[in-house]
């Protein structure tokens, strides 16, 4: 299981995946909005989304876990 972290403080602008989705390495899973800019967060390795921790509109800090990938 791999945890995907926000990498930057900001607002969750879009959640692009749901639990159970198959993702490929490098695929964008969430788009954050920080300092008026869209920051995509992608997974490093492919797998299945085991859990999504955030909802659109949530505020996250830079080391917060966003999704788990199995």
């Amino acid at each position: 299981m791999a945890k995907v972290e926000a990498g930057m403080a900001g607002n969750v602008w879009k959640v692009l995946v749901k639990e159970g989705d198959q993702v490929e390495a490098g695929q964008e899973v969430v788009i954050l909005e920080s300092m008026k800019m869209e920051i995509p967060v992608s997974v490093e390795e492919g797998g299945t989304i085991a859990k999504v921790y955030v909802q659109e509109g949530d505020f996250v800090n830079d080391s917060d876990t966003i999704v788990d990938v199995e």
């Binding site: 930057m8 403080a9 900001g10 607002n11 920080s34 300092m35 008026k36 800019m37």
Partner: peptide, 14 residues
């Protein structure tokens, strides 16, 4: 408008 110790927050323009 910043100084040593200021926090640059994610809420506003960079």
């Amino acid at each position: 408008a910043i100084e040593a110790g200021s926090q640059v927050t994610p809420f506003y323009d960079p």
